[in-house]
Computed example of a mutant assay.
Amino acid sequence: MFAEERQLLIAELVADNGRVTVSDLAARFGITPETVRRDLDTLEDVRQLRRVHGGAVSMSRLSMSEPSIAERQTQRQDEKSRIAAAALALVPTSRTASIILDAGTTTARLADRLMAWTPSSPGDQLLVVTNALPIAALLVGNDEIQLHILGGRVRGLTSAIVGASTTSQLEALRVDIAFIGANGIDAEFGLSTPDTVEAAVKTAMVRSARRVVALADSSKLDQETLVRFAALRDIDTLITDVPPSPKLAAALDAADVEIVIA
């Protein structure tokens, strides 16, 4: 097999599996570890992967890799819709209820469903607190919902409102449920996101809620990004689209987290 053919296969393996190890590739192709390392160096030079200790990872798995909200809106739409439908069932139906909707495309799907929210009984109130401009733009059209938009600086990549003033406002709140998104949920690292300022806001949201519900499709499971904003024990419920891996499921069970498969 020519080196170019082997490197193409290695690039495909990384794209499919997210990561590869030098030892596994050496055994698979019957080559020396030194040859594998040269192949990985070549592929890194053309931005097909990122070298890490003992192997390589997909460029999409870098700790600070973060697609824009426009890109994410077109990804895993069916899974996010199912997760949002399951989350809607958890929205409190008490006479006065309050929720937080974190910035993100899955929480935006929940906001889509809340556009049709009406009181089940006269006088029922639902307060929605959000730091997401797209979510605020959706919910402002429903006169039945009391909308509270957190103030701060708008982060262009995600259209999220962030900053010290945002977190300080959250510190003064105690809502019934916070619906939180995450870029990664890992058995050991917990819930994470690539950006430090968004992580600070997410942490404040978690602390401000009586109940925390994480909304994450299966592509986020067993993943780590740069900044941890919550431990598994800090959330009460995880809504996702497939059962977590045995390792993550065991960690969630040990942290007493309810798992809902949408």
Rank of each mutant, 00 (worst) to 15 (best):
S60R: 15
P119H: 09
E66T: 08
L252D: 04
I135E: 02
S63L: 15
L62S: 06
E66W: 09
A199V: 03
L9K: 09
S98Y: 04
A231L: 13
V91F: 08
L226F: 13
A262F: 12
T240A: 04
E12I: 01
I239R: 00
I31Y: 09
S159T: 09
D112T: 12
E71G: 13
E5S: 02
D124S: 08
R82E: 14
L114P: 00
G152W: 08
V242A: 11
T106R: 05
R6P: 00
V201L: 07
H53M: 04
R207H: 11
A251K: 00
T32A: 12
S121M: 14
A84T: 04
A230H: 03
N183D: 10
R61V: 08
R50H: 07
E44F: 05
T42V: 14
A136S: 09
G163H: 01
A200L: 13
S68N: 12
A172F: 10
L226V: 09
V57T: 07
R50C: 03
T203C: 13
E188T: 15
I10G: 02
I180A: 04
Q77Y: 15
T96F: 15
A15P: 08
R76L: 15
S23G: 13
Q75G: 14
I10M: 04
K220F: 14
D16L: 10
L157A: 07
R38N: 12
G163C: 00
G152F: 08
V36Y: 04
K202T: 08
S165C: 10
D24T: 12
I99E: 04
S65F: 14
V197G: 15
V57W: 01
L127K: 12
D176M: 10
A187Y: 05
V175L: 07
R174A: 11
R113S: 07
Q169C: 08
D78V: 15
A87T: 12
R82K: 10
I135W: 01
H53W: 10
S168C: 10
L49H: 05
A116D: 13
Q7G: 05
A70W: 06
V91W: 08
E171L: 11
D195Y: 09
L49F: 01
D78F: 13
G184Q: 07
R95P: 14
S159K: 03
E188Q: 14
K80G: 11
S159P: 09
A116K: 10
L88R: 15
I177V: 13
D102T: 11
T166W: 11
R233K: 14
E5I: 05
R109W: 03
L150R: 00
G190E: 13
G123C: 07
R109K: 15
Q146I: 14
P243M: 06
G55C: 05
P194C: 00
A187V: 03
R95D: 15
M1E: 06
L126S: 02
D102W: 01
L13R: 02
G55S: 06
E224M: 11
I99G: 02
V22I: 10
V140N: 06
R6H: 08
R113D: 10
T196F: 15
T118D: 13
